[in-house]
Design a protein around this nucleic acid. Sequence first.
DNA 1: GGTTTAATGCAACTAAGTTGCGAAAGTAGA
DNA 2: TCTACTTTCGCAACTTAGTTGCATTAAACC
Lengths: 126, 126
Amino acid sequence: MGIVRKTKAVNTVLNIFEHNNEAKSVVNLIELVKGEMNKTTVYRILDRLEQDGTIHCFNGKDGLKWYAKCNGCSENHHYDLHPHFQCTNCDKVECLSLEVKIPSLKNHKVDTTDILLMGQCSDCLT
Amino acid sequence: MGIVRKTKAVNTVLNIFEHNNEAKSVVNLIELVKGEMNKTTVYRILDRLEQDGTIHCFNGKDGLKWYAKCNGCSENHHYDLHPHFQCTNCDKVECLSLEVKIPSLKNHKVDTTDILLMGQCSDCLT
DNA sequence: GGTTTAATGCAACTAAGTTGCGAAAGTAGA
DNA sequence: TCTACTTTCGCAACTTAGTTGCATTAAACC
């Protein structure tokens, strides 16, 4: 069970994800809400939102934890198998809504995938 | 430029990668050479071996840095685009020698990919 | 409004990874 | 093999992401 109470802090975090479609690193989020709430609170709210299926978590190339809004996820089923794209120029991370086919592996059972593409985003290409 | 001197510590680290084909987390490597060398030395040797193209680096699902031996890599060109497989049961990580096709993205230039598959390895399936 | 309990703030902590510097050990040339 | 030069190492101190415990605050339901 994730979020049970809609506190001011929860709304603030939700607003950030609602307002633009980019993924955010926890470090960045903590910076964004500095003065408004404690970093512990940020970590705990993200934990709860993830349990709810509101957001999903993955690792950026920088080794940091990143979070982004989920599309069509619920507490029970998490469609977090989509790849992410991180721009090596501006560091912005996007969720990609395409499916990557993984060739089947003998003697291995693949449950989840974690795919990060890196390069230049549309803003940095022009 | 990476390794210039073949020290005892460098040989110890190289031996670990030569003896089996698994990827190792830095934390695990530090544990393996405990008493023989300092953790700072481990980090620095790994840095140099990576620059040489002897080993390559990627992030495990645990958020830790992992290293594995390179096949056919040089200082100039790094063929580190292969996917990795991490067993969720025994934590062992393997390099997979298969190619994953990434569909082309409009307005994006993809330079590198970081693909981690997770599930059960052959040892843990039986 | 009062009570219950989830959520928050704070401070202290853990652990991965980095940095600076003096000491030790490769390497090359005599 | 001895010497001189320069890389590499060890140590200690530091940085930063992320976690934990506990007392306090504030949603939510009556």
